[in-house]
Simulated scan of single mutants.
Amino acid sequence: MSIPNEALQKLLQEIEQKAAFSQQQIQIVKAQIAAKNRESRMVQLTSSELNTLPKDTNVYEGVGKMFVLNPTEDVKTRLATETNELKSDISNLEKKLHYLETTYKNSRDNLEQLFKASGSR
């Protein structure tokens, strides 16, 4: 069974576009994962610094252009929540990255199959 040249070209173009889009999205997701990892590391460092302070110490947190005095326990609770959210975000981004990499690989495999099929004509 042979595919007409026009249909083959259209199919080839669609697969190439899908592969290019997947590749762009892979780069974006990798950058997002790196940013979330940096943010997670900052939260972890802040939390470890807070753990070295005495329990009754109050700390200042930046809110917009001002600073607010908060007890360390409140800040630790906020940091723990933020850590859990970041872990969840990173996990979701890794799933998305895996999906995009699979899509990209499948597109490349389909392109190779098309070239082999059209070359054997």
Rank of each mutant, 00 (worst) to 15 (best):
S2Y: 08
S2G: 03
P4F: 03
A7I: 10
Q9A: 07
L11A: 13
L11P: 00
L12S: 12
Q13L: 00
E14G: 11
I15Q: 11
E16N: 06
K18H: 09
K18E: 10
A19G: 05
A20W: 05
F21G: 01
S22D: 10
Q23T: 15
Q23F: 10
Q24L: 08
I26Q: 07
I28D: 03
I28N: 01
I28T: 02
I28R: 10
V29M: 00
V29P: 00
A31W: 00
A31F: 05
A31N: 11
I33W: 00
A34F: 07
A35I: 01
K36E: 02
N37A: 01
R38A: 08
E39W: 06
Q44A: 10
Q44V: 00
L45V: 07
S47M: 01
E49Q: 12
E49V: 08
N51H: 10
T52K: 11
T52H: 09
T52E: 11
L53P: 05
L53K: 09
P54T: 07
D56P: 08
T57Y: 10
T57V: 15
T57E: 12
N58Y: 12
V59A: 08
V59M: 11
E61L: 13
E61P: 04
V63S: 14
K65G: 04
M66I: 13
F67N: 10
V68I: 15
L69R: 14
L69W: 04
L69I: 09
N70V: 11
N70F: 07
N70P: 02
P71R: 14
P71F: 11
T72Y: 00
T72D: 01
T72R: 14
E73A: 15
E73F: 15
D74K: 14
K76Q: 15
K76F: 09
R78F: 14
R78S: 15
R78Q: 09
L79E: 11
T83H: 09
E85T: 05
E85M: 00
E85Y: 04
L86S: 02
L86E: 00
K87A: 01
S88L: 08
S88P: 02
D89Y: 00
I90G: 03
S91C: 03
S91L: 04
S91I: 02
N92F: 07
L93S: 04
L93Q: 04
E94Y: 00
K96Y: 05
K96A: 02
K96H: 04
H98Q: 11
H98Y: 06
L100K: 01
E101G: 04
T102H: 07
Y104F: 14
K105C: 12
S107F: 03
D109M: 05
N110P: 04
N110G: 08
L111Q: 12
E112C: 05
E112I: 08
Q113M: 14
F115Q: 06
F115N: 13
F115Y: 06
F115T: 01
A117K: 14
S118K: 01
G119N: 10
G119P: 00
S120I: 09
S120A: 10
S120W: 07
R121H: 09
